[in-house]
């Protein structure tokens, strides 16, 4: 009797492990983040797939009251034109300095890739889209968090205006510094995923990503790319090379 229980448990564990293996084997295709044979990335992939399988798809991150707004540190790159900053890029830093001097009148956000109507949007054009204001919590991977009010255009509106193709599966976001991040369509089309140009009732400050940053409310803070300059829609997963989080040893999906 006892022996049988043991065999059943062992069999259950083995079949469980086998199904995990099947889950991870999917990492070879280009519709999922790659693991590079790295066991840490395999764990990240398992977490990503478990979140997508188990969590409610349409849930909204909690939105707070105006009185809940807290102080908020500005970290990482806080000015792409400053050569002393981390992830500084000389060419784009100079461009950033120029558009900043124009009060961001010369700033354009380029939408490219798998869209029917690629193009570049000025700040004024983005502000003509219906806006969304949300008071949400920013959870930094370091361990701290803060509540702020963000105003911007839902990314979904912009992608629809650009005519996103039905085969599209991922959206990549490039900044003025050497940083970039990608989202799957579930997070990209989420109603709280916005291109934010306002913070706490004012224009987005330089230190927090002026003129426009991404807000991804169901992932850690580093997915909310600051200083946006270019959005690329793709059919396949793109690890973004040396400026992406994956090749720098950080998880791509951080709904955590």
């Amino acid at each position: 009797m006892k022996k049988e229980t043991l065999i059943t448990t062992r069999r259950a564990v083995l079949s469980g492990l086998a199904s995990c293996g099947g889950l991870l084997a999917g990492g070879c295709s280009k519709t999922l983040p790659p693991t590079y044979g790295n066991v840490l990335r395999m764990g990240d992939l398992l977490t990503y797939k478990a979140h997508r399988l188990l969590l409610p798809v349409h849930s909204l991150a909690k939105e707070y009251e105006h009185g809940d707004i807290s102080s908020i540190p500005a970290i990482g790159n806080t000015n792409p034109a400053d050569p002393r900053q981390p992830t500084f890029n000389a060419d784009r830093g100079a461009i950033y300095q120029r558009v900043r001097d124009s009060g961001f009148a010369d700033w354009r956000l380029s939408i490219e890739g798998r869209v029917a109507r690629p193009g570049a949007y000025s700040l004024a054009e983005l502000k003509r889209f219906p806006s969304r204001t949300q008071i949400t919590k920013h959870t930094c991977e370091e361990g701290w968090s803060a509540i702020a009010e963000w105003t911007g255009v839902p990314l979904r509106r912009v992608l629809e205006a650009a005519g996103m193709l039905p085969s599209a599966r991922f959206v990549q976001f490039y900044a003025f510094d050497d940083s970039a991040e990608g989202l799957d369509m579930l997070d990209a089309l989420h109603p709280q995923t916005i291109l934010a140009y306002g913070m706490n009732g004012r224009d987005l400050p330089i230190s927090h990503g002026a003129p426009v940053r991404l807000r991804v409310e169901r992932q850690l803070g580093y997915k909310s790319v600051k200083f946006l300059r270019r959005i690329v829609v793709t059919d396949e997963f793109d690890d973004l090379g040396k400026i992406g989080s994956l090749q720098n040893g950080w998880a791509w999906y951080v709904g955590i």
Binding site: L55, P56, S59, K62, T139, Q219, G255, I256
Partner: peptide
Amino acid sequence: MAPAITAGYPWLA
């Protein structure tokens, strides 16, 4: 502590 999980199940936080 997870933003995606607490979005789905706010009572956890």
